[in-house]
Design a protein around this nucleic acid. Structure first.
Length: 488
RNA sequence: GGCGCGUUCGUCUAGCGGCCCAGGACAUCGCCCUCUCAAGGCGGAGAUCGCGGGUUCGAAUCCCGCACGCGCUACCA
């Protein structure tokens, strides 16, 4: 059997981190078995449609590096891959169910349905449709009312009144549902579009999908789906519900927990490789110790058997740590390109673009183990590019020289002298000279270095000082040290 | 209200009857390294395995109750 999985989002907004995790597992399962991963757009809810969503969905998958094999704009043998272009198939399936007596037209108005639900709620009864249209007499009555008011009809599934049905889930195992607790759900809406329940089943069958992966919040709806597969004579695919991804307070991950959009993470400077690795570990693990896995390792080892059932809280601290790991392990030239790109976009307007790549290549080794996020780049090295440093007198003096600015001033003068006339303006020579100066001035080397650091970089936290000075060059170091001295 | 699912350190997880008075990772704390900050090394603290009953020579692991949490309960997915 060819393994074919699909990621089937609704185009209602920006891709959510939880959906992307599902897409990742779909991708992994397909790759693991040499199958295909398809993208299908489930746009049957015309009221929630966001026309800008499709390109975003594709962009998010490409960014993560899990581009689909088939889908809208990509093509494939089972298109179209957008449900609104497939309504004839759903209509056909509904007609068949109607003809077989597994479904019926329901002409009840939404007003009647609302009243019914209110009534049931008042009596503390489950809010189930009362099946008025299930028999001919009731349906005829409803129809007359509807036609008088110009209302349309929906198609409902004729759920058996008793019996049970068992879901065999690849992750959650078997769950048996009592059919008496189900109601006659809507498959085809009055606007002619299908509901999720009918549409996905028809599509999966036609697109030869072998495995359905979706969030565990769908488990409750699964018995309906099982009923449809049976009525339509389809062999159900392997069904696997995935544990939910939760926010820090244990409820469904949402905006108030922070970023839920995959793009927010991208923009904050998270790398696709780190996100891939992190999301791959949300509900799945290789063993009791492996945290960092390559894409190839994920593909080689991924199995549904090792997916856990319990929901996972999204732990951004761990993602951030992992991002740092990927930054440190990345090939140097790739990091140089990323850093340069970031500086081009983040540095003030006054700095000429593009920034000098040769300089960036010298800076990157100094900052690579200091940054966990790409957004931190600017903080660490803007002083290489920006000329007017803005720091306060207090910053410059620091704790060591707080009460003796005159000493700070002479220290800076000494520093200028010390770094003048060097055979080469190299970090080891600079360090050696300044250490001697510190001794001569009777100040602690660290105190002198801190003073020089702020003078030369404008910041208290920087990459290694002497390497930074070497890159800055003699001229800029001299003028910055003199500027600092003149401030005292 | 009904139905369903889940429950191992703060968080992600390992564990599928004895190797576990529970292992790893993030976060946290301390020490080392050190020009700041990181990174790195070493170490600490942190889970009576939700609770209560069973089964068994032996249970985090099997069974039954309960509690709590979450989900679904739309002509949304």
């Amino acid at each position: 059997m060819t393994v074919r999985t699909r990621y089937a989002p609704s185009p209602t907004g920006v891709p959510h981190i939880g959906n992307i995790r599902t897409a990742l597992f779909d991708y992994l399962l397909a790759r693991r078995h040499g199958g295909q991963f398809v993208l299908r757009i489930e746009d049957t809810d015309r009221t929630r449609l966001d026309p800008t969503a499709l390109p975003k969905i594709i962009e998010s998958l490409e960014w993560l590096g899990i581009a689909p094999d088939e889908g809208p704009g990509i093509g494939g043998p089972y298109g179209p891959y957008i449900q609104s272009e497939r309504v004839e198939y759903y209509r056909g399936a509904a007609d068949r169910l109607l003809a077989q007596g597994d479904a019926y037209e329901c002409w009840c108005s939404s007003q009647r349905l609302d009243e019914l639900r209110a009534e049931l709620a008042r009596k503390k009864l489950p809010p189930k449709y009362d099946r008025r249209c299930r028999d001919d007499a009731g349906r005829a009555a409803s129809r007359n009312e509807a036609e008088a008011e110009g209302g349309g009809c929906v198609v409902r599934f004729k759920t058996p009144l008793s019996g049970e049905i068992t879901l065999h889930d690849a992750i959650f195992g078997d769950t048996t549902f009592d059919l008496a607790t189900l109601d006659d759900f809507v498959m085809l809406k009055s606007d002619g579009f299908p509901t999720y329940h009918l549409a996905y089943i028809v599509d999966d069958e036609m697109m030869k999908i072998s495995h359905v992966l979706r969030g565990s919040d769908w488990i409750s709806s699964a018995p309906r789906h099982l009923l449809i597969y049976r009525a339509l004579g389809y062999e159900p695919p392997v069904i696997a519900h995935l544990p939910q991804i939760l926010g820090s307070d244990g409820s469904k991950l949402s905006k108030r927990h922070g970023a839920t959009s995959i793009f927010e993470y991208r923009d904050q400077g998270y790398l696709p490789d780190a996100m891939f690795n992190f999301l791959g570990l949300m509900g799945w693990s290789l063993d009791d110790k492996t945290e960092i896995l390559s894409r190839e390792q994920f593909i080689e080892h991924f199995t549904l058997e090792r997916v856990v059932k319990n929901p996972a809280v999204f732990n951004i601290d761990k993602l951030t740590w992992m991002n740092g790991v990927y930054i440190r392990d990345m090939p140097l030239d790739r990091l140089v390109a990323l850093v340069a790109e970031r500086l081009d976009s983040d540095l003030p307007q006054s700095v000429p673009r593009p920034v000098d790549r040769t300089t960036v290549a010298r800076i990157v080794p100094l900052i690579r183990e200091r940054i966990k996020l790409l957004t931190e780049i600017k903080e660490y090295c803007d002083f290489f590019f920006v000329d007017d440093l803005s720091y306060s007198r207090d910053d410059l003096l620091g704790k060591a020289f707080r009460d003796r600015p005159a000493d700070a001033r002479s220290a800076l003068d000494a520093a200028v002298a010390a770094v003048t006339g060097l055979a080469s303006f190299a970090h080891d020579a600079l360090e050696a000279r300044l250490r001697v100066s510190a001794t001569e001035l009777s100040v602690k080397a660290g105190d002198l270095f801190s003073l020089v650091r702020v003078a030369v970089t404008g910041r208290k936290v920087t990459p290694p000082l002497f390497e930074s000075m070497e890159i800055l060059g003699e001229e800029r170091c001299h003028s910055r040290l003199r500027d600092a001295a003149s401030k005292l």
